[in-house]
Design a protein around this nucleic acid. Structure first.
Lengths: 207, 207
DNA sequence: TGTACAATCCCCCAAAAGGGGTATTTTTTG
DNA sequence: CAAAAAATACCCCTTTTGGGGGATTGTACA
């Protein structure tokens, strides 16, 4: 096989550059991008075997990109390279049938092992993540997160900004009961029971 | 001048290694550590001119380390290399009289510029951070954060974990009123008024 | 055209959080 | 040891949340 062609997508320039340096002995790095919106065109421009994709990218996040890539370039292997170990990220990756998931605190060797596995057609999830089984309702998170309506997301943001039910009601020209209902529906959808959990959810999901 | 000696402290192995590769043409990298508790011994072991220090390190955070380093090795220049742009981090860095503060999404050139400035004895804060003036009460945050007592920090963590006052009381074998008092004192110290704000504080400060 | 969904509003009630105090007992520390 | 700080506990009262219902009005979509 020819030298496999890599694309690196990470907005942290130093990290991106560092990974390139580490992998350029063994692979051909055909591109480095720093923004989600540049990923698809980069793949289009240069034939790519594997993309190392950060989840937290500007403009478009890694999950949305993975969907797009699978749709438009179905031969490109996708490996998430992320600092997050949150189960729901792993679950969502599996749901999206992404080829691999590596952690940013891996060693060079682990990184290469992951890439090699994926090139052989296997899927490779970082060994530190084994605890995350493919749950039977692996798309719970997915459904949960994205079934929040626009109004609900708006209210989540306001709660995150520290506003109380009455303040939100006032600002949105709504009755308090309406806002309460929204809160209840949000909690139900996210399977949580209190505002503190909502804040964590909101921060973790960049809402 | 001889080749300046660098120490890199960052728990993300790939990043750490990447930075080493990038800088090893120009500097001598005398050490790479991945855990806060290994930093002081590493400096002790190898003469170090500049340490690139992540704030978010295991065991001991960058701020505490900076204090220790200044106390024990006052000739070592300290540069924080962090992804955080939060004003209070910058303020605290200035308060600690750290020599530089660089962002992880810098380019190689910016990194070198920062290191060179610091080596010349200047202080260098990433240009993307100019908006952060040294505030008159620059130690407000500092005082706030660190005037939390151990018990209070313990309770902050439990609140962050979603526990209610009564659950905390039960777990700590305390009366609810005691926990309420702690909560009140915490809120007072942090100038906040509700648990949602506490969650944000806790997450942002890795408590 | 009808049904699913979003958005709005209402009732009731319990639990929790928030805000104002005060006070006692340990622990730490100069 | 004496003073300061931390940890503990209580009272009173208000506001906010949380949980259980149910209901109406649009609007989108198939």
């Amino acid at each position: 096989m020819l030298t496999p062609k890599l694309l690196i997508a990470d907005d942290h320039i130093l990290f991106n550059e560092g990974v390139r340096q580490l992998l350029s002995e063994k692979y051909e790095v055909v591109g480095q991008v720093y923004d989600g919106k540049d990923v698809l065109s980069a793949i289009h421009l240069k034939k790519t075997d594997v993309i190392l994709l950060d989840i937290n990218l500007p403009s478009i996040n890694g999950f949305d990109l993975a969907k797009e890539i699978k749709r438009a370039f179905d031969t490109v292997k996708i490996i998430f390279l992320s600092m997050y170990t949150e189960p729901r990220f792993i679950e969502q990756s599996k749901f999206l049938e992404v080829n691999g998931y590596l952690l940013k605190n891996s060693t060079k060797e682990e990184l290469i092992e992951g890439i090699e596995s994926v090139l052989r057609g296997e899927t490779y999830y970082d060994t530190k993540l084994q605890f995350t089984k493919i749950s039977l309702h692996h798309n719970d998170f997915f459904v949960k997160q994205y079934s929040l309506t626009p109004r609900e997301i708006e209210i989540v943001r306001m709660i995150k900004d520290g506003m109380s039910t009455s303040q939100i009601a006032e600002k949105l020209f709504l009755g308090q009961e309406t806002v309460k209902t929204h809160r209840k529906n949000i909690y139900y959808k996210l399977s949580i029971t209190k505002s503190t959990e909502l804040i964590k959810f909101a921060i973790e999901n960049n809402i």
